[in-house]
Design a protein around this nucleic acid. Structure first.
Length: 285
DNA sequence: GCGTGATGTTGAA
DNA sequence: TCAACCTCACGCC
């Protein structure tokens, strides 16, 4: 499930459920057991998302007798990356026996969270957290993000815009679905080199990513079709698969484009599947 | 039951 | 460019 919107949503979910609470921390699967023991009984102070990276901040000691309501400084971060098929699921008590694949379990008074299959789950310092963020381009979901920082790289690159959109050093948080969809929405040929984009084209793509991904956080799924192309508006059946959201081209290979009816195309690009409409997104020039 | 693929990243060749 | 990693749901016997 994990593009940036999922991770930002998970950060908010952690804050909502656990902020300011002492948590039981364990690693039923065992691979995070040592760190879990260090965190057990400590307070989750905050949760933050940067691109597809999730950081859970825990304050120092488990026996801080100060019953203050002031947030304590974060002493350690848990750095989580879900990779391609990691999942983070919340539940409410009664807390069940964990599956033996659960890498990290957090238990609070009113909720628990199970992490499975992450590509990364590690205890890091504040400096390491900052370093991880510094390796990333601007994240459309962060208020402080500056799309022109991505433009500086993009506009000098011979690499295709499709590949650049997935390069987290260029911009952070976009995955295979948003890439395909935002290029479709702007009629941009995925194979165009970054350096052939005009500034106004990039500004429009960036602004659209900001909008689409915010909707993604809110709805907890990826919806990209405009009002005139919804199932209701077109009198077509809704999409039925595990992603749930309504999209134009992602995984619609061979199906008619919702705008022009041309069969949607797919191709492999850098070991990822690319989807586009050859008529709505023609080669430039 | 087995094989496959998936909204991702890293590190070696 | 390729393999490795982490998990699970689905299709096909």
């Amino acid at each position: 499930m994990p593009e940036g919107h999922t991770i930002h949503r998970l950060a908010a979910d952690h804050r909502e459920r656990f902020r300011g609470e002492r948590l039981e921390v364990s690693s039923p699967q065992g691979r995070f057991a040592e760190s879990a023991a260090l965190l057990d009984g400590r307070t989750l102070e905050t949760a933050e998302a940067v691109g597809k990276h999730l950081f859970l901040g825990f304050s120092g000691s488990r026996d801080s007798s100060g019953s203050t309501t002031e947030p304590a400084p974060v002493a350690d971060w848990v750095h989580i990356h879900l990779g391609l098929f990691g999942r983070l699921d919340f539940g409410v008590p009664p807390v069940p026996e964990p599956a033996d694949t659960v890498r990290l379990r957090l238990v609070g008074s009113g909720a628990y969270a199970d992490l499975r299959g992450p590509t990364r789950c590690a205890l890091v310092t504040d400096a390491e957290k900052r370093a991880a963020g510094d390796r990333l381009g601007p994240d459309p979901l962060r208020g402080d993000a500056d799309g022109s920082r991505a433009w500086e790289r993009l506009s000098r690159s011979r690499t295709s815009i499709a590949a650049l959109l997935l390069d987290q050093k260029v911009l952070a948080g976009v995955g295979n679905v948003y890439r395909a969809e935002v290029l479709f929405r702007h009629g941009v040929d995925p194979y165009r080199a970054g350096r052939t984009l005009r500034r106004h084209e990039w500004d429009a793509l960036w602004a659209d990513l900001v909008d689409l991904m915010r909707i993604g956080v809110r709805e907890n799924r990826i919806d990209t079709v405009r009002p005139e192309h919804t199932p209701e508006a077109m009198g077509r059946p809704p999409r039925v698969d595990d992603h749930g959201g309504e999209v134009y081209v992602y995984r619609r290979t061979g199906l008619p484009c919702l705008v022009c009816s041309t069969p949607v195309r797919t191709a492999e690009l850098g070991a990822r599947n690319l989807f586009w409409c050859p008529r709505c997104q023609p080669p430039a020039g």
